[in-house]
């Protein structure tokens, strides 16, 4: 299928990626080519086939409900680009 500019902008917005006009055009061309190639899957008859997400049929990999020590807060915050002694910092999310 052909990827329209609006669709590129829509997925860019969903992905929180900013594209300028040139980049939108470039992405549009490249995505159209790749998605066009993906469309050959339509040649395959997959009726009645269950979509497979996990390749091996393992199940019930579970953990016991036993408390493990949490990490020191300093380690949790250490790599944050901006933080206080207690928490991460983001621009205010409410007015």
């Amino acid at each position: 299928m052909e990827i329209k500019k609006e669709l590129v902008s829509y997925v860019a917005d969903l992905s929180r990626i900013r594209l300028d006009e040139t980049e939108v055009a470039e992405m549009q061309a490249q995505m159209s080519e790749i998605v066009g190639y993906m469309d050959i899957l339509n040649q395959l008859d997959t009726d009645g086939i269950e979509p497979m997400s996990h390749i091996f049929s393992i199940a019930n990999v579970l953990r016991d409900d036993v408390v493990q020590p949490s990490y020191p807060r300093a380690d949790i915050l250490r790599n944050a680009p901006e933080h206080t002694d207690e928490a991460f910092v983001v621009p205010k999310t409410v007015e």
Binding site: L41, N42, T46, I49, P51, M52, S53, I55
Partner: peptide, 12 residues
């Protein structure tokens, strides 16, 4: 059309 289809192809 894409993701779910690919998972079916994966099964194949």
């Amino acid at each position: 059309a894409y993701y779910r289809k690919a998972l079916k192809v994966k099964a194949l």
